[in-house]
Design a protein around this nucleic acid. Structure first.
Length: 445
RNA sequence: CGGAGCGUAGCGCAGCCUGGUAGCGCACCUGCUUCGGGAGCAGGGGGUCGGAGGUUCGAAUCCUCUCGCUCCGACCA
């Protein structure tokens, strides 16, 4: 993309309403625009990141064998009366009537609807196990939205639902989700720690929240420093292998890590003192096992091998996709702007033309831009007629992890500059070498 | 929902107390100069002062109502 033809409305000054770094930077980098309290338009740069996160979530869900579908944002109140949650949910649920006076709601989650879909089409244990998920906009009418997309009223969420015959099968689904989530967050360049949690209005006995450590997080967290060092890395996981999946879960959950809701001071005190950590975390996902809570209430049964009808065992699992954009920035920024991890960056590399209009510099930039695109990369070429300082400031603000700087001074020696946004370190090399380095960097992403 | 604030140009703000032709910085447009870390000079455009009532000769300013937004608290992916 050529910046001169893109839509990137960056702000030089800080918007008054933004209190935390991610909110401020998303507004300044032209990623979002607020349209109402807790409701945002996603401008091109923000939309790109959002789409990228969605893509990673889709890939990892499908790798784990889960099946995508798409349910509507609007739901009928009747479904929610069946589960008893229409009255239980409270004013957080946005309710309204259509022209025929039918009671509707903007879905805050989809347990009822997925159960309705399941019971309409599945009647035998032979069709299990089944895990369906979608990535869809939700609405929760928070009393007090704040922190930009981190706590909006409208938000994009991946929510998935497993259907199994037995408790053991459902617990395997639970474990499978935990592992797939670990991989999802790692690919995004995040350390998200699974912590034993409270089940809240979803209900259920088994639940973990995934928290990204950040001092602007909403939850107080207590953990053993060792848990933050755990990595899934590039190990290959067979998601159908119960033992393997369970072992990984054990590895990640046997080290102490809890939110204030489930914190146990006595257990915490058993951790060697030098490893005890108290901090804050941003919740970016949660998994639940809740058995037959919805299936029993809504009549989602299958015929078991012995001929009896049994309610299916279920769980649900969510990833706050839009909130992750904010969490990523909270975890990756400095005083100049955002620093995107390679896995989620909106553009792979920025090209800064230091002397727009200079024939040799323009030609060199065009060549690099063309070569990168031909190699399958998505570069952002700053071809605006701006001064170097302005171009650098924009690149730093929007946080592309790599920058190729091209100017007459370097070109005289046939060199360009490759700069890391994270370390600030620059290295002079030929344009070909810079392109090769970019290819190398992204080969593992 | 309790408490506290704020709505004046695209953004950040002053003006309001003490009523009298609406200002500043950034951004934007034109020209010249400049050109490796958010340039300088000169000129220019843009605002029914959130909305509705009221008081007054006269309201951004005073009064009433209303809408929106933000912050602290309780609540939450």
């Amino acid at each position: 993309m050529r910046l001169s033809r893109y839509f990137l409305p960056v702000l030089k000054e800080n918007p008054a309403e933004a209190q935390i770094a991610s909110h401020r930077l998303m507004l300044r980098a032209g990623m979002i625009k607020q349209e109402a309290a807790g409701i945002y338009a996603w401008l091109p740069l923000g939309f790109k990141v959002l789409r990228r996160l969605e893509q990673i979530v889709h890939e990892e869900q499908q790798r784990a064998g889960h099946i995508p579908l798409l349910m509507p944002t609007l739901q009928s109140a009747d479904l929610w009366r069946e589960s008893g949650r229409y009255d239980a949910y409270g004013p957080e649920m946005l309710r309204f009537k259509d022209r025929h006076d039918r009671e509707m709601l903007y879905g805050p989650t989809n347990e009822e609807m997925i159960t309705d879909i399941f019971r309409a089409h599945v009647s035998s244990y032979k069709e299990l196990p089944l895990t369906l998920y979608h990535i869809q906009w939700k609405f929760r009418d928070e009393v007090r939205p704040r922190f930009g997309v981190m706590r909006g009223r409208e938000f994009l969420m991946k929510d998935g639902y497993n259907f199994d015959l037995t408790r053991e099968d459902a617990l395997h689904a639970y474990n499978r989700h935990m592992v797939s989530y670990l991989r999802t967050y790692e690919r995004m360049g995040l350390t998200a720690i699974p912590m034993r949690a409270d089940s809240g209005p979803i209900g259920g006995e088994n639940t973990h929240e995934f928290l990204v450590l950040a001092n602007t997080g909403e939850s107080e967290v207590f953990y053993d420093a060792a848990v933050a060092e755990l990595k899934l890395g590039d190990r290959q996981v067979d998601y159908d292998n119960r033992e393997e999946v369970a072992d990984i879960c054990k590895e990640f959950t046997s080290v102490y890590a809890r939110t204030d809701e489930t914190h146990d001071e006595a257990l915490f005190d058993q951790i060697p003192e030098e490893r005890r950590r108290v901090g804050r975390g941003i919740e970016v996902g949660q998994i639940f096992y809740f058995g037959t809570k919805y299936s029993a209430a809504m009549g989602a049964t299958v015929t078991a091998p012995d001929g009896t009808k049994v309610p299916v065992e279920m769980g649900s699992h969510g990833i706050g996709v839009s909130r992750l954009v904010g969490a990523l920035i909270e975890a990756n920024h400095d005083d100049k702007g955002i620093i995107w991890p390679e896995g989620v960056t909106p553009f792979h590399v920025g090209i800064v033309n230091l002397k727009q209009g200079d024939a040799a510099t323009d030609t060199a930039c065009e060549a690099i831009y063309g070569a990168l695109r031909a190699a399958g990369f998505d570069p952002l070429y700053d071809d605006r007629d701006e001064r170097a300082g302005a171009k650098f400031a924009t690149m730093d603000l929007i946080g592309l992890p790599w920058r190729i700087t091209v100017g007459p001074r370097g070109l005289a020696k046939n060199l360009v500059e490759l700069t890391s946004r994270r370390t600030g370190e620059s290295e002079e090399m030929t344009a070909e070498a810079a392109i090769a380095r970019i290819a190398e960097i992204y080969a593992g992403v």
